[in-house]
Amino acid sequence: MAMQPLVLDKQLVRLKLNGRWREDAVADNQLLIDYLRDVARLTGTKAGCDGGECGACTVLVDSDPVLSCLTLAVRCADRSVETIEGLATHGRVSALQREFHEKLGTQCGYCTPGMIMAAEALLRRNPDPSEGEIRTALSGNLCRCTGYVKIIDSVQAAAGAVR
């Protein structure tokens, strides 16, 4: 008798994406970033490097910051994944999004979705972070435009607004 394959090449994956459950047939070798951009058509999440160096692809998995370019999509089964598209409610941007705009925390914008998701993870755990804590939380995110000062200002302003 032929051995049954242990796992099929594609698995039916059920996950919560930006608050809504969905189900897709996902290939075992698909990375979360490609699933988000190509399958779910959420192109807010960016790819800025060839693996793990830049933070542009940061999303939240069960509220933890995770690099979607190093994550297999099938490993997100039954979990909650959040991207930049999930932050606005009823067409209104979140405090972090607003302050990145107001305080010029974004210039070209390429790093911004990752920056905001990394900052979102921080503020959920720690609504009143020190500057040092903000720097640590964003240490894995590269920005080639702003020089980071305005980004830290934006996160501080958002924390103040939420308080």
């Binding site: 242990l6 796992v7 090449d9 075992d28 070798n29 698909q30 990375l31 370019c69 297999l72 490993r75």
Partner: peptide, 22 residues
């Protein structure tokens, strides 16, 4: 190269199963 070559993912529940798969 950004795409991974085709592969399968197994998710064993215990150490014995993991070692047997390997």
């Amino acid at each position: 190269m950004s795409e991974l070559a085709p592969l399968r993912v197994a998710r064993p529940r215990d150490v014995e199963a993991a070692v047997a798969l390997r």
